[in-house]
Design a protein around this nucleic acid. Structure first.
Length: 437
RNA sequence: GGAGAGGUGGCCGAGUGGCCGAAGGCGCUCCCCUGCUAAGGGAGUAUACCUUGAUCGGUAUCGAGGGUUCGAAUCCCUCCCUCUCCGCCA
């Protein structure tokens, strides 16, 4: 949520900033509602004050044994007046709230103009895509042929290492089954990433629920606007499967007030499955692991002082890039343009890994700074020791990395002519082998 | 699933209809005292919003939402959560 004070003091400036992302802010409607709200609020509070002071008098009179009947008569009409004023106020506040919570965050100045992903701007590139002296297979074909001999497991294999048919049978489209070396590689990647972030990058590992309530989804900005992207349980508690670990982790500080800044920055890493209905992307990436309804992710979340959030985004992005560098996977980093940036984000870097079969870079991590946008929705605050005042925290998060896409990138980039996959050096201790067959 | 007890400020905890935004304690801040440390004395210390140049002032908030009442932390209803015991169970 944007700062209502800023919206009031500089509506034109806010509207201009939001234009960059193609959002039209109805400044006049908001102002009209807010002006009304102000009048009614003042009226309501005056009535409340009257009621309170008269009620106090009744109490006093009663205590001293006086007759309270005339006093009761005085407040007779107050109640209905107050009720109607209060109702009007609530209605206005609701209308304003409904508008405000649907307004996206303002992109910071560095965010480039543009309308979609084609307008994102590359900021750096690392590594050189390998040249192959044989015909490159994609991870689907590679996975289908792996694990077929019984030599790499106990007994005969029930199927291939990467089996989309089995996923469809058990559940439906966009679900996969992994076996043998690929399943192990998947697990190794999770271990490896958490180890690097917690041992080398100063992150604390946490484990969180995979089902969350509506308040949590509101706090990070998925609700109320993006309900159709989520899987919802039909439980009466209205629980949702998490679309990303960002939701449970960031909400750890919902409704919290840190008494100083000594705990900051708070840097958390967590591994969770993620569930997305992919409602708006029926025809996209239907082949392979790129876009599944269920995937796993190692996620980093930062809570920082406002003055530190811009640097924190650079650091966090570097932590994600470090994983790709250790895995020796070529990547490029882009800054998202105004039209492609997420609802809650003020600035986002996407990291894209090289995918040989597609001959292009594909998103493997998205690192965002939200400023105080999420913190305001969540009431996540700290007391600034310098001023003694409470301030909203700044929140950031980034994938470090998406496991399924990393797996796919390793399979394709490390494939051999015979269809086997070399294990990246840093994963060999986790895998107990240097090749997957 | 059954029975019971609870949810109050940064934390602990008192408060069963009115001068209660809330005693007391801890913590924190400032001052005094003090070779250092420790102990001690004094003052202050919720959040959000409205109003104001800033104070002053006002409103709301005692798990959440409704209700009763002139007036609710306190009474009633619904829901959520925590704890104890029993049952069941990975």
């Amino acid at each position: 949520m944007l700062d209502p004070k800023l919206l009031r003091s500089d509506p034109a400036g806010v509207a201009k900033a939001l234009e960059k992302r193609g959002f039209i802010l109805d400044v006049d409607a908001i102002k009209a509602l807010d002006d009304q709200r102000k009048v009614i609020q003042i009226k309501t509070e005056a009535l409340q004050q009257e009621r309170n002071s008269k009620s106090k008098n009744i109490g006093k009179a009663k205590a001293s044994g006086e007759d309270i009947a005339p006093l009761l008569k005085e407040v007779e009409n107050l109640k209905s007046q107050l009720n109607s004023a209060d109702e009007e106020l609530k209605s206005l506040q609701d209308q304003l709230e409904t508008i405000l919570i649907a307004v996206p965050n303002m992109p910071v100045d560095e965010v480039p103009e543009g309308k979609d992903e084609d307008d994102n701007v590359e900021v750096r590139r690392w590594g050189t895509p390998r040249t192959f002296d044989f015909e490159v297979k994609d991870h689907v074909d590679l996975g289908a042929q792996l694990n077929l001999s019984s030599s790499n497991g106990n007994g005969a294999s029930l199927g291939s290492a990467l089996d989309f048919d089995a996923g469809s049978k058990i559940t439906g489209s966009r679900f996969a089954v992994m076996r043998g070396g690929v399943a192990r590689l998947h697990r190794a990647l999770i271990q490896f990433m958490i180890d690097v972030h917690s041992n080398e990058h100063g992150y604390q590992e946490v484990h969180v629920p995979f089902l969350v309530n509506r308040d949590s989804l509101f706090g990070t900005g998925q609700l109320p606007k993006f309900e159709e992207d989520l899987f919802k349980t039909n439980d009466e508690r209205e629980l949702y499967l998490i679309p990303t670990a960002e939701v449970p982790i960031t909400n750890l500080l919902r409704d919290e007030l840190l008494q100083d800044d000594t705990q900051l920055p708070i840097k958390i890493v967590s591994h969770t499955p993620c569930f997305r209905s992919e409602a708006g992307s029926h025809g996209r990436d239907t082949r392979g692991m790129i876009r599944q309804h269920q995937f796993e992710k190692v996620e980093m979340v930062n809570f920082v002082k406002p003055s530190e959030s811009m640097q924190a985004l650079e650091d966090l992005t570097a932590c994600a890039e470090a994983i790709l560098e250790k895995l020796e996977l070529p990547y490029r980093t882009v800054i998202l343009c105004g039209g492609d940036i997420g609802f809650s984000s003020a600035k986002t870097y996407d990291i894209e890994v090289w995918v040989p079969s597609q001959d292009k870079y594909r998103e493997i991590s998205s690192c965002s700074s939200f400023g105080d946008f999420q913190a305001r929705r969540m009431k996540a605050r700290f007391r600034n020791p310098e001023t003694g005042k409470t301030e909203l925290l700044h929140t950031l998060n980034g994938s470090g990395l998406a496991i399924g896409r990393t797996l796919l990138a390793i399979m394709e980039n490390y494939q051999q002519a015979d269809g086997s996959v070399t294990v990246p050096t840093v994963l060999r201790s986790y895998m107990g082998t240097d090749v997957i067959r």
